[in-house]
Computed example of a mutant assay.
Amino acid sequence: MHVAMIVSTPMPPEEGIGYYTYNLSKELQERGHRITIVTRGGLKGMSATHDGLEIKKVPYIPAYPFHVDLHGIFLRRRLRQLGPDIVHTHTPLTPPVDIDIPVVSTIHTSVVEDANQTDSIRPGALAHRFLTRVTSRRTIAAQAESATELATVAHSVKEELATHFGLSGIHVVGNGVNISEFDGVSDTNERFGLFVGRLSYRKGIADLLNAWEQLPDEQRIPLKIVGKGPLREQLEDQLSGTGLSGDVSFLGHLPRADLVRLYQQATLFIVPSHYEGLPTVLLEAMAARTPVISTAVSGALDVIDDGENGILVPARAPEEMSEAVLRLLRDPEARKRLAARGRETVEREYTWDAVADRYLDLYETSMNA
Rank of each mutant, 00 (worst) to 15 (best):
P13E: 03
M11A: 04
Y22C: 02
I55N: 02
P65E: 08
P12H: 13
G16Q: 05
Y19G: 03
M46S: 14
L43H: 04
Y20Q: 07
T39K: 05
T49S: 08
G18S: 04
A63K: 03
G52W: 08
F74R: 06
I73L: 08
L75H: 00
M11T: 11
S47D: 15
M46C: 07
Y60E: 08
P12C: 10
G16S: 14
L43E: 06
I37Q: 09
I17C: 10
Y19W: 13
Y19V: 14
P65G: 05
Y60C: 08
G16N: 04
D51A: 12
N23L: 12
E14D: 00
G32M: 08
V38I: 15
Y60V: 09
E14K: 00
Y64G: 06
Y20I: 11
S47F: 09
L24I: 15
V68K: 03
E14S: 13
H71F: 13
E27R: 04
Y22H: 12
Y20L: 10
M11Q: 11
L53E: 12
P59A: 01
P59F: 03
G52P: 10
G52D: 05
G16A: 14
I37A: 10
G52T: 06
R40T: 06
F66H: 07
I17Y: 00
L43K: 07
F66L: 08
R31L: 15
K57D: 00
E54M: 12
T21A: 15
D69T: 12
N23R: 13
Y20T: 11
L75K: 01
